[in-house]
Design a binder for these strands. Structure first.
Lengths: 207, 207
DNA sequence: GTAAAAACAAACCAATCAGTCTGTTTTATA
DNA sequence: TATAAAACAGACTGATTGGTTTGTTTTTAC
């Protein structure tokens, strides 16, 4: 009889991995079924975790959801801070700005990440506790975009708009476009519209 | 004993009014509690309608929700078509465009209407049947904005961007801003940012 | 090695979910 | 005015919800 060596793990290891699995499964359930469909049973199935084990690590579903949402948004804030400087090709304005837009689009406003962002924002709307925890992170995201994307950019001499403001407007536009794709499906026009936006920005920004 | 004269109503009247009440209550519940919290019981409480009466008029909650969402969006499409021409003050560009933006903002992207728009869009994401019914209306909205807002506007001679595209970008920007307010609360910067965008538009558009 | 604590499993619970069933009231038809 | 049909009310149903309870396995501390 072969005895499979039960991988012995310390309790901190166990605890951390279990909580990580549960939080990940919460986001998976949110992405797959939306806030309304992400029941505890669905989440636990995805995590492969029993109800009893779950209860040992979290008091309520709301607490677990809040933790998952906070993690998602904090990562987005951190990611926003590292977006622009590295990827901007030097020289020609519209193309470089276009590349920045495409990076932001792909990172935040397509696919699963976009879906989660919207699900979490909407969930917070009607849940005071969740809203209180998430609202400041949403604000941080905009602040991060405004402050850090401008690092590799310079306003053109005669430009009437501050760099930070232009970057915030850009993010808002991408978000609205993302919502359109979420609701109506992807549109072939959108890549062209992003390039058009980059061109308008280039009149204000040099890089 | 006073006999209150029971207001006699025809069956078509009854039917129509009951369905109208139920659809209105569905939107109220959606606005107040979100998709996840808008249970049939909540909706029926708001409507003041019994379960039996409801069942006589709708087969499923999903069907009623779809009808409510369709109505909401079709009204928005119609409203988008009548937005610009009447309200634009003639003459000076940035101010007129600013007024257009503020109109659009107030009509679509503030308060209850904004909340419902987002709730409905997100609900459709994970509900294939609902998505199939709503997606074309979301597309119609963008088409309507692109086509009709340009009626009172003219591109400036040297402008590189089509009017319709600029209007669509504008709506996307407003939407993204709306989502920020939904998630993080209203921001005093946003009115300024809208005016800033109106100024940038004025470089491309004369009116 | 042994006792305590942490981790885990699964049966269980009251409340609520969407939807149905049965019977009553109101309107329409003849 | 009698009969049928539509409108309505409220009790009821099985499934599912978030959460609890009881008992077992694994890790830790002595």
């Amino acid at each position: 009889m072969v005895e499979v060596a039960a991988t012995r793990r310390s309790q901190p290891e166990r605890r951390e991995e279990m909580r990580r699995r549960l939080v990940a499964a919460t986001l998976d359930a949110l992405a797959d079924h939306g806030h309304a469909g992400a029941s505890l049973s669905v989440i636990l199935d995805k995590a492969g975790v029993s109800r009893g084990a779950w209860a040992h690590h979290f008091d309520t579903k709301a607490e677990m959801l809040a933790l998952a949402a906070e993690g998602l948004l904090r990562e987005a804030v951190a990611s926003a801070g590292t977006l622009s400087p590295a990827i901007l090709p030097p020289g020609d304005g519209p193309a470089a700005l276009g590349a920045l837009l495409e990076q932001a689009w792909a990172r935040f406003y397509e696919g699963r990440h976009r879906d989660l962002l919207f699900e979490v924002a909407l969930a917070a709307r009607t849940d005071a506790e969740l809203k209180q925890r998430l609202a400041p992170i949403f604000s941080d995201f905009i602040t991060a975009v405004g402050q850090s994307w401008g690092l590799a950019l310079r306003p053109r001499p005669g430009a009437g708009a501050a760099l930070a403001d232009l970057m915030v407007l850009t993010v808002y536009m991408l978000r609205g476009m993302a919502m359109q794709e979420l609701a109506a499906g992807p549109s072939p026009d959108h890549a062209r519209l992003r390039a058009l936006w980059a061109g308008l920005l280039a009149a204000q920004i040099s890089c």
